[in-house]
């Protein structure tokens, strides 16, 4: 196997709170290879978001080793190794869509010409060409989230970390965005870490599905998807898809069972 892009060995994270320590992650072992699309699924409190934040260097594990591009997550964050998409689009209301996508480019010191070229390219990529000069409030929720994905893509990091990016959107918009995300992934070949609590979404998108369970947050199952990379929406009615979804559901139930 090629060197993993993200590698976790015996990762532990304990938060100290006023009610005593909270074991957010316990003995998490996982390798993510280049070009993988890995979903993290589990009930709230299972540590899926916390693990993603550890990869991003936004939280620091209290035990184990975690490397991103063979660096510590902190170094990887400084090297701007990944783009991060949050649950809410979080666009600056005082900037246009183009201005919002430009934000990381300004901070990272790209040249003006390069900025304009990149904004145009990533807005094309998320199907928002022509909306560059609109303000966020003039766009629907789904379009805003697409703009925030464009913002995460603008500086061409190889890794894309997404924390329930479509959680607040309705089913139809979510289907559409899932389809677009797969197309985007196919075109860019990025390594994607994707947190969700929707089983169909996880199965539809991923090459691997990591099932997690709470108290303490840990991995209970890692499922390799047997689905082809080319996935029309109809694939969700195939027996293969249903079989994988079933296994994910079983994994989630098993995680709940031992409480």
């Amino acid at each position: 196997m090629v060197d993993p892009v993200i590698s976790a060995t015996a990762v532990d994270l304990t938060f100290r709170t006023n009610d005593g320590p909270v074991h957010a992650l316990k003995d998490v072992n996982l390798n993510i290879a280049k070009g993988d699309f890995v979903s993290f699924i589990g009930p709230s409190g299972c540590g899926k978001t916390t693990f993603l934040r550890c990869i991003a260097g936004l939280e620091t594990p209290t035990g184990g080793t975690l490397t991103v591009n063979d660096m510590s997550p902190e170094e990887a964050r400084r090297a701007r190794a990944y783009g991060y998409v949050f649950q809410a689009a979080g666009l600056y209301p005082w900037r246009t869509i183009g201005g919002n996508v430009k934000l990381p480019l300004e901070i990272m010191g790209f040249s003006k010409a390069d900025q304009a070229e990149r904004v145009k390219r990533v807005l094309d990529l998320v199907d928002l060409a022509g909306f560059e000069n609109k303000f966020p409030w003039q766009l629907s929720g789904g379009m805003q989230q697409r703009a925030s994905i464009a913002r995460a893509l603008a500086f061409d990091a190889d890794i894309l970390l997404m924390d329930e990016p479509f959680g607040a959107l309705d089913e139809i918009v979510r289907d559409h965005l899932n389809e677009q995300l797969l197309a985007l992934w196919a075109r860019t070949g990025k390594t994607i870490g994707f947190v969700t609590h929707s089983i169909p979404e996880a199965v539809y998108l991923s090459t691997r599905i990591v099932v997690m369970s709470p108290r303490p947050g840990r991995i209970t199952d890692v499922i390799e998807s047997t689905l082809p990379r080319e996935r029309p929406l109809e694939i969700r009615d195939s027996p293969e898809f249903i079989a994988i979804a079933h296994r994910v559901r079983e994994g989630l139930r098993a995680g709940h069972g031992d409480e």
Partner: peptide, 24 residues
């Protein structure tokens, strides 16, 4: 917190955070 985290993912300096986010 999310807005501030976003700037951390860009490894923005405190001064950039002030000009780009906090002041506006």
């Amino acid at each position: 917190a999310m807005q501030l985290d976003l700037l951390r993912t860009y490894h923005a300096s405190p001064l950039q955070g002030l000009w780009k986010l906090r002041f506006p």
